[in-house]
Computed example of a mutant assay.
Amino acid sequence: MTEHLAELLAETDDPQAIKELLELATNTEHEDPSSSPTRSLSEFYEQFLSRRQDRSPATRAQYKRTIPPFIDFATGHDVTTPARISPDLLDQYVDALQATHDSDATILTHTKNVRGWLRWLNKRGHCPERVYRILDKDELGLEPSARDEALPTTVADMILERLRQQRRGSLKHAVLELLWNSALRIGGLHSLDLQDFDPANNELRVRHRPEKGTRLKNGSQNHGRGGDGERNILLDDAATQALVLYTQYEREDVTDIYGRDPLFTTSQGRASQSTLRRTIYEATSCRWHPSDSDSTDCEGDCDPDVAVCPYSYYPHAIRRGAIVHHLSGGLRPDLASQRFDVSIQTLEKHYDPRSKRRRREDRAESVRDAW
C-alpha cells in the first residue's frame, strides 16, 4: 500500500469509497510494472487482435463486433486502462447488454469474447482473475434456448421427412439433408463448389481455398496450418438425391467473384455464411418442427441477433447431433474423427453418447476380436 493511498483511506469514512480505493490498489498490483501506464484499452485490444492472425475471418469479425463496444462502455465510465476494470464495471456492462438485447445467446456471445480478452490481459498481469470470472456463463445466469443443444435424431428425422414431402430439392431441404449426413461446419458448407459434388459416386470433396475466398477451420497441410480439414466425404442416398434435385431445379447458375461455381448460390453469387445460417434457422423453425406441426406463424426473420424462431437450432447443434447420431449407430471414433474433422479426444469428451462402462466393454470386445 502506498503512502498516498494510506492518507486517502485515513481521510474518509465512506465504506463505498474505501472499497473502491482498495479495489484500485489491488488492480494496480496486478498490472505489469514493465508496461507503460499510458497504454490504453484500445491499444491492448489491437495487440490482442494482432496475436490472433491465425483465427478464421469469422472469429476475428466476432472479436471486432463485440470487444470494441465494451471498450467504449468502459471509456464512457472513465476506465481507460485494464487496471481500472472492476467487477462493478462489468456488472454495469452486463446490465447494459440485457437492456439492449433480448436474446441470452447474443449476450453470451458478447460476454464470452470480452471474457476471453480479459483473460488474455490477466495472463499478462494487467488485470486480476476475479475480473474476468464475473463474465462466466453460470455466474451470469444466462439460459440460451434449446437450439444450443444437439439436434436429437428423432426431431431431425421428422423435420427432414416434412421437408422431403413439402420442399423437396429446395435450398432448405438440401442444406439440412447434407448437414445431417456430413456434419459439416458452416465454413465447410460455404466453401463447396458445384464441381466438389460427385453424385455418381455419392461423394463430396471438401477443400481449403483461402486464396479464392473460402476457408476451412483447420486449413490444409499445404497451407501451413496445424490441422487438415480437407477430405472426401461419402454421402448417403438421401443427401445425394436432395443435392441433385437442388442443383437441377433451384440452384442459381452463377459464379462468384473468383470465377468459381458455388454449390449453394443466390442471384448475387456464392451464398454467404449468414445466408446459409438463416437457411438453417428457417429449416428447423416452428413451421417444420414436429412439436408444433400445425403452426405456420414463423415469419422466417432468422437474424441470430434479432428474432430467431424459438424452435430453430444453430448450425453447430445440427453438427453435434449428427456426430452423436453416427457414433450411436456404431461408427468407430477413429473413423468419425476423419469424417468430421475433429480430434478423438474431443469426440470422447463432447460427442460420444456411450457410458464409460459401455466404452470399456466395446474396447474389450475389439481386443478379443483382434485375438
Rank of each mutant, 00 (worst) to 15 (best):
L5P: 01
K19T: 11
S40I: 06
Q47N: 11
Q47H: 13
L49H: 02
R55E: 07
S56F: 04
A61P: 00
A61Y: 10
R65L: 13
I71N: 04
H77C: 02
T80S: 09
T81A: 09
D88H: 08
D88T: 12
L89P: 00
Q92C: 06
Y93G: 02
T100R: 07
D102H: 06
D104C: 01
T106M: 05
T111L: 02
G116C: 05
L121W: 01
E129A: 15
K137P: 00
T154F: 14
A156V: 09
L160A: 01
L176G: 00
L176T: 04
L178G: 02
L184I: 08
I186T: 10
I186Q: 04
Q195I: 12
D196A: 03
K212W: 06
N222I: 10
G224T: 11
L234I: 14
L234H: 11
D236E: 13
L243N: 02
Y249C: 04
Y249H: 14
I257E: 15
I257L: 11
S272C: 08
L276P: 01
R277E: 09
A283S: 09
D294G: 06
D294H: 13
D294Y: 14
C302M: 10
P304L: 05
P304V: 07
P310W: 10
P310D: 12
H316C: 01
A317D: 04
H325R: 11
S328R: 14
V342I: 14
K349S: 13
H350T: 07
D352R: 06
K356W: 11
R357Y: 13
R357F: 15
R363T: 11
A364Y: 04
E365H: 12
